[in-house]
Simulated assay, not measured.
Amino acid sequence: MKQALYFGVLSVLLAGCSQFKTNKQAASIPVNLESHVQAHNDDVLADVPTSSPKIVTSDSRTMLLGKWYGIRKTGDGGQKEWLTERSADGTYRVDFRSTAKNGDVRSQSEVGFWGVSGGTYFRIFRGWVTVEGMKPADPHNADHYDAYAIQSLNDSYFTYKHVVRDHLYTVKKMPADFRLPVTVKSESNEPLTFSF
Score class of each variant (00 low, 15 high):
residue 129 V to F: 00
residue 127 G to V: 02
residue 173 K to T: 00
residue 35 S to Q: 13
residue 182 V to Q: 14
residue 160 Y to T: 01
residue 51 S to Q: 08
residue 170 T to R: 04
residue 8 G to S: 14
residue 162 H to Y: 01
residue 27 A to G: 10
residue 175 P to I: 06
residue 162 H to N: 15
residue 112 G to R: 05
residue 165 R to Q: 12
residue 181 P to L: 14
residue 136 P to M: 15
residue 166 D to L: 11
residue 169 Y to G: 07
residue 175 P to Y: 04
residue 33 L to Q: 13
residue 188 S to N: 08
residue 131 V to A: 14
residue 196 F to L: 11
residue 69 Y to I: 03
residue 59 D to C: 12
residue 37 V to H: 01
residue 82 W to H: 10
residue 46 A to F: 06
residue 93 R to T: 08
residue 83 L to T: 00
residue 180 L to K: 09
residue 165 R to M: 11
residue 74 T to E: 05
residue 42 D to F: 05
residue 162 H to S: 07
residue 96 F to D: 03
residue 26 A to H: 08
residue 89 D to I: 06
residue 142 A to L: 11
residue 89 D to G: 04
residue 108 Q to H: 06
residue 165 R to W: 06
residue 89 D to E: 12
residue 190 E to K: 10
residue 7 F to G: 01
residue 172 K to Q: 14
residue 129 V to G: 01
residue 169 Y to T: 14
residue 24 K to N: 09
residue 76 D to Q: 14
residue 188 S to H: 09
residue 109 S to H: 04
residue 151 Q to H: 08
residue 144 H to M: 09
residue 94 V to Y: 02
residue 63 M to D: 01
residue 71 I to T: 13
residue 85 E to F: 04
residue 119 G to M: 04
residue 168 L to C: 10
residue 195 S to H: 09
residue 124 I to S: 09
residue 89 D to N: 14
residue 128 W to I: 05
residue 173 K to D: 00
residue 168 L to G: 11
residue 128 W to G: 05
residue 86 R to W: 03
residue 23 N to I: 07
residue 107 S to R: 12
residue 121 Y to I: 02
residue 45 L to S: 15
residue 61 R to D: 02
residue 132 E to M: 05
residue 136 P to L: 15
residue 110 E to M: 10
residue 95 D to W: 02
residue 26 A to N: 13
residue 31 V to Q: 08
residue 126 R to D: 05
residue 68 W to G: 01
residue 171 V to Y: 02
residue 57 T to R: 00
residue 60 S to M: 07
residue 154 N to R: 05
residue 5 L to Y: 04
residue 171 V to I: 09
residue 88 A to E: 13
residue 97 R to L: 09
residue 176 A to P: 02
residue 80 K to I: 15
residue 99 T to N: 03
residue 191 P to R: 07
residue 193 T to Q: 10
residue 107 S to K: 10
residue 10 L to D: 03
residue 111 V to G: 09
residue 182 V to E: 10
residue 191 P to K: 12
